[in-house]
Write a protein that binds this DNA or RNA. Structure first.
Length: 737
DNA sequence: AGAGAATGCAA
DNA sequence: TATTGCATTCTCT
């Protein structure tokens, strides 16, 4: 009777809906929590009830918006912090002053300023329309309002923001289909409008409108790659030349991807969401897409909510683009952005769209073959162990090996025994089960990740369409997901056979070209080391040459063992070496490894100077930089923790080299792509694997493409050492590599 | 369900 | 106690 039970969901919902929403510094809604805590405090203070109980029971979960749900969860966490945990139980806790004080304190914590305050809000008016004549008129207005003169310098402060709404739906296997269900347009500060794909307003229609706009206006969006299936910007459509190291991007209208720009400005982040860009560059809290729509298909979303969201996003693109651009300019990355990354985004789109044929039946046969052997090994392992257990579980495997069988353990990981391959290899002599486990592991990996894994990505056109991601890596490399086609096995013959399922279409072959030691050549260039440069000019085997210098033996007398060691040292140098790391790689003592390194630096003194220089500069500027101006901040260098600082130093040594290699490959891709286009060849660029490009080549174009590919890669950049690329052709990827 | 750890594949 | 990634499986929350 004296107890009041309050439902938290209703509390949050009422509070959230009855006042202007605001968020915390991370962009999460907290106004519902704020209101709920405030109401609770009032009730406690009023003293009408002796006991208070907050219930988190909820019968209609699916009807709640994600924003309400997440705030309710957070409220639960907050209230769980109260000393009397009966607050959350049915009995309830006493409505004391202590509870009121606790609530008061929590109220002050739900805002970044220590008190709740409304944050800046979007002042843009939003609407939507599917009326053809209205849409026509709006596009025409946009075009007039944002027209950029083709002759005079582009001020780059006036953008038409657009934001496509893309719905992702499962299409079986691991395949996801992406549908554009509308786009929003923002061409003035005050208003934005959303055009749902509907009736006469088709995706094609909207795409053509955008292409038209791109002829005369600067367009800004977020993740432009995802809108290329809607439209091709005029600058791409009309382009017939490769990379240009000039400022022609200052003339004529350009497209601006705020995602790519934000990535270049801060490449260390893991993800770039438009909400973050809104917050960071404009100080505006754009609602998180997941908060508004949850996991529901956007096609079913409330048109008003979707429209408002899309409009605000377009507004963010319009307003953030000039600011992102200004920062790029200030940091000397405008050229990198306009001359490399923006055109590259289209190339990646085209490569994804093209895809690569994977033969389903061959993959199945391969997988079945693996299965036979896996089953055999499984049986042997169980009988040797005396129990059946999950071999894939490091925990269970560790128990079997190190407790049941009593093999000597190296307790290495946080959660128990390490069963990593290098540990197991050392135990191979102890028990015959170990070799079986290693073989089992290898085959299971091939089956699950490659045989079965890849098969799930084969679409109706018999092709795998990977995603190339341009804004993931801290160094400027591209990455590949769903599936990752940049880590198809190569080292072992059995694994390498997977590549046989990747074949060109009828009448075509693969042309596969890779750079020869691009990173070491870049090191030679950037360090200016005469010995390294000379070795490359003389066309020497660089690892043998290094071995000759490090071990002080004539070039002709270098043993294969010495060459192998030298190769490992060369790799280590590129990664930012430590004696311990090298010793582990070569299975030698750290002392010996240190000697190798000292001799290496004696042989190539400018390399040592170079490494010291880049670390010093990185410490001064807080960033590393590539030949083409790509920057990577290295906050680790300021750390007080020795290991973290050491890591920062290795990063400072590696990032300019790996990053420059990435820059060069991107330039080569631009040159290759637009050369194929200009020469109207049927052959298409389909894969990039960091230092390797694959072209699906029409049979009658084989010689031309081989020549073109090699030449464009080798001449992408001119360094003090020659760039060398080797091209092979074949009727599958295995043969072509 | 989602996160993190362990493992292993590539350049 | 070497650089950059991504996928799978297991395990815990």
């Amino acid at each position: 009777m004296d107890i009041l039970t309050i439902n938290a969901f209703n509390l949050i919902k009422d509070a959230f809906n009855s006042m202007p929403a605001f968020t915390d510094a991370d962009g999460n809604f907290v106004s519902g929590i704020y209101g709920a805590l405030f109401k609770l405090k009032s009730i406690v203070k009023a003293g009408e009830y002796k006991k208070i109980s907050v219930s988190f029971e909820n019968g209609a979960d699916h009807e709640l918006s994600p924003a309400v749900k997440s705030q309710t969860d957070r409220l639960k966490d907050i209230l769980a912090g109260y000393t009397d945990t009966a607050l959350l139980s049915a009995e309830g806790c006493d409505a004391t002053d202590a509870l009121a004080d606790f609530l008061e304190k929590e109220i002050s914590l739900v805002s970044p300023l220590g008190k709740a305050a409304a944050v800046p809000v979007f002042e843009v008016k939003t609407s939507f329309t599917s009326d053809l004549s209205e849409v026509e008129e709006l596009f025409s207005k946009a075009s007039k309002k944002c027209c950029v003169s083709a002759s005079s310098k582009n001020p780059k402060d006036n953008y038409i923001g657009f934001y496509p709404i893309v719905d992702t739906v499962d299409a079986g296997g691991s395949i996801k289909k992406k549908n554009i269900i509308g786009i929003s347009l923002c061409y003035e500060d005050e208003t934005a409008v959303y055009f749902p794909v509907q009736g006469f307003i088709t995706a094609d229609y909207l795409g053509n409108k955008l292409t038209e706009l791109s002829k005369s206006c600067n367009l800004a969006t977020f993740d432009i790659k995802s809108s290329y299936n809607l439209f091709t910007p005029y600058e791409i459509e009309s382009r017939d030349y490769g990379y240009r190291d000039d400022q022609s991007y200052n003339e004529g209208p350009r497209c601006f991807d705020t995602l790519i720009g934000a990535y270049l400005n801060d490449p260390n982040k893991n993800d770039y969401m438009i909400e973050d860009i809104s917050k960071e560059y404009l100080g505006l809290n754009l609602e998180k897409r997941a908060d508004l729509f949850g996991k529901e298909a956007l096609a079913n979303a409330d048109q008003n909510v979707l429209s408002a969201y899309a409009c605000k996003a377009a507004f963010v693109c319009k307003k953030a683009a000039p600011l992102i651009g200004k920062k790029l300019d200030k940091d000397g990355m405008e050229g990198l952005f306009y001359n490399i990354e923006m055109p590259l985004s289209y190339i990646l789109f085209a490569m994804e769209k093209e895809g690569i044929i994977a033969e389903r039946e061959q993959l199945k046969i391969y997988g079945d073959k693996l299965k036979v052997r896996i089953d055999e090994l499984e049986k042997d392992i169980y009988s040797a162990a005396g129990v059946e257990f999950n071999i894939n579980s490091p925990k269970q495997l560790g128990e079997v090996l190190f407790e049941k069988l009593g093999l000597p353990a190296e307790k290495k990981t946080k959660s128990g025994y390490s069963t990593a391959a290098d540990v197991l290899e050392k135990l191979a002599g102890e028990h015959k089960i170990v070799a079986d486990i290693l073989e089992y592991r290898g085959l299971a990996k091939l089956k699950s990740t490659y045989a079965d894994g890849l098969a799930a990505f084969i679409e109706d056109d018999n092709r795998i369409h990977t995603s190339f991601n341009q804004t993931i890596t801290a160094t400027g490399r591209i990455s590949s997901t769903e599936p990752n086609l940049q880590n198809i096995p190569m080292r072992t013959e059995l694994g390498r056979l997977i590549r046989k399922v990747f074949v060109p279409k009828e009448g075509y072959v693969f042309a596969d070209a890779d750079y020869s030691q691009i990173e070491l050549r870049i090191l030679a260039h950037m360090s200016g080391d005469e010995g390294l440069i000379k070795a490359y000019h003389d066309g020497e085997d660089i690892h043998a040459s290094t071995a000759s210098k490090v071990f002080h033996v004539p070039f002709a007398e270098v043993t294969s063992e010495q060459r192998r060691s030298a190769k490992a040292v060369n790799f280590g140098i590129v990664y930012g070496i430590s004696a311990y790391g090298l010793s582990r790689d070569l299975s030698i003592s750290p002392k010996e490894a240190k000697e190798y390194m000292d001799k290496y630096f004696e042989a190539y003194p400018r390399v040592k100077e170079y490494q010291e220089r880049v670390v010093k500069e990185a410490k001064e500027n807080g960033t590393s930089i590539t030949l083409f101006g790509r920057k990577r901040p290295i906050p680790e260098l300021k750390a007080s923790n020795f290991n973290i600082k050491q890591f920062g130093e290795r990063v400072a040594m590696n990032a300019p080299i790996q990053g420059t290699a990435a820059d060069i490959m991107k330039i080569a891709m631009i040159n290759v792509f637009f050369r194929l286009k200009k020469d109207k060849l049927k052959s298409k660029l389909i894969l990039q694997i960091h230092d390797e490009l694959v072209i699906e080549t029409a049979g009658d174009e084989t010689d031309i493409v081989k020549e073109l590919l090699t030449k464009e890669m080798e001449s992408a950049v001119t360094l003090v050492v020659p760039m060398e690329a080797t091209c092979h052709t074949g009727s599958d990827w295995y043969e072509a590599k």
